[in-house]
Design a protein around this nucleic acid. Sequence first.
DNA 1: ACGATAACCGGAGTACTCTCCATATACAAC
DNA 2: GTTGTATATGGAGAGTACTCCGGTTATCGT
Lengths: 217, 217
Amino acid sequence: MTPRRDTLPGRTTLPVIGQPPAERADAARNRRAVLAAARTIMVNDGVDALCMDRVATEAGVGVGTVYRRFGDRAGLAYALLDDDEQRFQAAFLFGPPPLGPGASPVVRIRAFLHAYVDRLDTHARLLALAEAQSPTARYGNGAYRTYRTHLIALLTLADAKADATYLADALLAVLGGGLFLHQRQDLQFSTDRIKIGLDQLLTGLAPTPALLPSSVG
Amino acid sequence: MTPRRDTLPGRTTLPVIGQPPAERADAARNRRAVLAAARTIMVNDGVDALCMDRVATEAGVGVGTVYRRFGDRAGLAYALLDDDEQRFQAAFLFGPPPLGPGASPVVRIRAFLHAYVDRLDTHARLLALAEAQSPTARYGNGAYRTYRTHLIALLTLADAKADATYLADALLAVLGGGLFLHQRQDLQFSTDRIKIGLDQLLTGLAPTPALLPSSVG
DNA sequence: ACGATAACCGGAGTACTCTCCATATACAAC
DNA sequence: GTTGTATATGGAGAGTACTCCGGTTATCGT
């Protein structure tokens, strides 16, 4: 048992409960170096070349440091997407309609699904990597839980009788990285076809005249 | 270049084109030994204990033999499910309604989804293992392709205007092993709740008065 | 400046999947 | 039986994810 920092005698500032101490300067430097190395590898040799040993070597740190910072391979993948993630979440939580508040729930769900497809088109390989970490890895991820909460709220508003909790996960399952790769690469689907397919699912769940397909944008 | 067996001089029986030669006796014996060892490990120590080295050792063969027979870990998992798989496919292809021919397309789809959930309840861990092999591993599997073809046919009959090819994969995505484990373990869903959720998806896709929820069985 | 201490570091070590290929074996033809 | 050949075998080895822990360093209060 070591004494806790915020019970040390002589402390002059109030302890902040629940907030971990700020990241140390060397740790921050290493974190940036690892992310930079990972991005370089990805650009040069593709997502599949992202292996932890190599990232560590090219970042000039030990492999233990990579794991300390990012937990595991999936954690590194999500960290690489963090900028996009922040922007995406801001857009559907606080941005302008139809994605953000202001539009009707069904319109917002549809906008969310379409925006997610566009995101997948850029990042599917990295997301698929992260999802493959373990069978249930995807569901524990913070970003996933945010999507889920968002969809549950909108689905509940759209149809109080539906099992929104179930349907949120169901919609997100159809947006899995592995399935998307299959659709785009093996089946040669366009992203528009995928969006139209999602519209069909959504129309069934929460029919709205205004939603019936005219254009996909 | 070695001469092909069926062009050897002096051959007295007609060559059978496209049919690989029968499995050699030693190979068959080893295949059975590997499957038996895998089942024993699974029963004693759980699905997670299924590692190729251990299976090989307990079957009394080299690890190379396991890979020759089953390709990879996912292949071994699917082989362990083969008996159930045969029965399930026979049921929805040739069995009695509502699963087999005779019932309306929508009723058959619903019966398929419910039967699949029951199957997941027994085998989700093993299926999740196989699906985690690679992001797109699931879609190349023969069983998956059979389900897919079956659902495409039924969905097309149910609604000629829908994109049955898209929707078949979408429904199967909602039946993924990883998602099922998440629903059952983390969210504590009952199988009935999952079936009702699937009904909601399906009702939206192909409304049928007779399908509206009375009981789940 | 300077300890005390908590946080961090690196890389050897473990465990696992999958490949390769020199050797061994089963089977068919005679 | 003998022989020829396709097929099977097994285990060493490569590649990779992840853990562990003795040693190091940044940071804070004095």
